[in-house]
Each structure stands twice: as C-alpha cells, then as structure tokens.
Amino acid sequence: MKIMVCLKQVPHQDARLDVRPDGGWIQEDNIKFEINSYDTYALEEALRIKDAGGAEVVVVSIGPERVTQSLRTALGMGADRAVHVKDPEADASDPLGVAKILAAIAKAENPELILMGLMADDGNSAAVPPMLAELLGFASTTSVMKVTRSNGSLQAERELEGGALEVVELTGPSVLSVQTGINQVRYASLKGIMAAKRKPIDTKSVADLGLAGKVGAAAAKIKIEKIYPPPKGKGAEILTGSTDEIVNKLVGKIKELGLL
C-alpha cells in the first residue's frame, strides 16, 4: 500500500518570534526551522506501518527551498520518496489553498492512506486534513492517538476532551490527522541519512498541478491583516532581585497563603 505523509516546515519551537515590520507574518530570516511536531508523529506512524508489513511512504511538503532539508530528514528516517511543491505562488495560501495543492498531489499519487498532523505549530489552524479529505472524497478523522489495521478496515482512536478516547472505524481511502504522543518518534540514523542522499525529491510548481491562479495569497479566501504580540493584561507581579531575594519572597507568599 501507499501512504502519503504531509509535512509542514515550521519555525523551531525555541526560535525567537519577531513580527515583520509590515505585521504580515514573523521574520523568517535568521531563525531555525524544523518539521512541525505533529507531523513527525504522522511520519513515524507511517514508518511503523511500513516496518510491520511493507508500504511505500511518500512525503509531501509545500514551502520554499529550505523545506528540502526537512524532506531529507524524513527520507533519512525511512520515507521512500519526497514531493516538494516549491513555488512562490503556493506561499501564503490559506488552508483551503494548501488542501487544494495536496489534493492535486494525492490524485496523482493515489495513496490508500494520508497521514498528517492535527495542526501546524505556526498557524494553529487544524484545518487542512479534513479539507483535503473533503476535496478527495476520502474518509477522515482527527486527533488520532492509535491506528490499527485489520483486513481492509482501519480503526482509529481519536482523542476527545479530558483524555477520553473515541474509537472510529474507517472504510476506504482515508485521511487521518495525528495527535502528538501517538508514538515515540525515531531519529534518522547515520546509515539512513546516507541512504537518503540517493532517494528522489520530485519538485513541482503550482502550474504543474493545474492550479495556476487558484491558490496562493491572491486566491486566499481569508487573509491575515496583522499579527502582533498579545496585549499585556494585568499580568503577573514579576519578582526581581537575586535568587535568594526572589526565593524569600516566594516563601513569604506561600506562608501568607497558609500553605507553609
């Protein structure tokens, strides 16, 4: 079977986030990028299915040149091939635009299963996976914490609030969005990284996919007017001084609360 895994490259979790002067997005030069945390779990889940019974794992990412590095990482972990949609016209698509691009790739690849992250750590939309399923006419479920396959059907456990789980059975080609913690993600081995150098990365433009004029910033149905640091409310009283002084104030407060 063929599994498509959609990976987004996002700013590193510890990157300093400065807003661009025009307020349109963050400043991207001089920060590190990495594979979206949720997507690393999706990739690991695909690789486990491959390890267990054989599957071809194709990773797909939309983004600029720097995304190549994340695709190489994914290939190093064990993915077989990569498709990179590298086209300035694809940038700044809204989630529906992203879903349209991924749907065009999926139609060409014809996977049985598409694994994605529940949400991207940058835009936090949690939107693309169900949208992609709708465009393809696939079955879908979200926030998946366990996947089991048995003769033709797929069972997924999806996370609800407060830690409850819902068991869902999916029929036919499916899109699953994966929640963090579903598995323990492997690292790329040195051997894997060496082997990845010979694995193909196929580059596509928006026009190649027949989507010229249909995606990207101009076609977006929703636009970011501005991003900005959250307005500061009352906030915490910040303790200052030496570590000793701070700690003494904290102990004083805990006593005042009657807890010491």
Binding site: P95, A126, M131, E134, L135, T142, L160, I222
Partner: peptide
Amino acid sequence: HTPIGWDLAPRIAAALDGAFVSD
C-alpha cells in the same frame, strides 16, 4: 473548536468553498 468542531467544520468549509478560520 471542540473535537466535533475541528473534525467537521473544515470539511464543511471545503465543501462550500468558503473562507475558514479556526479557534
């Protein structure tokens, strides 16, 4: 934006080819 909302709303937005904004 609950397990039902984030599962269903994006599919509806795609079906209606509408504008989608979450959470």
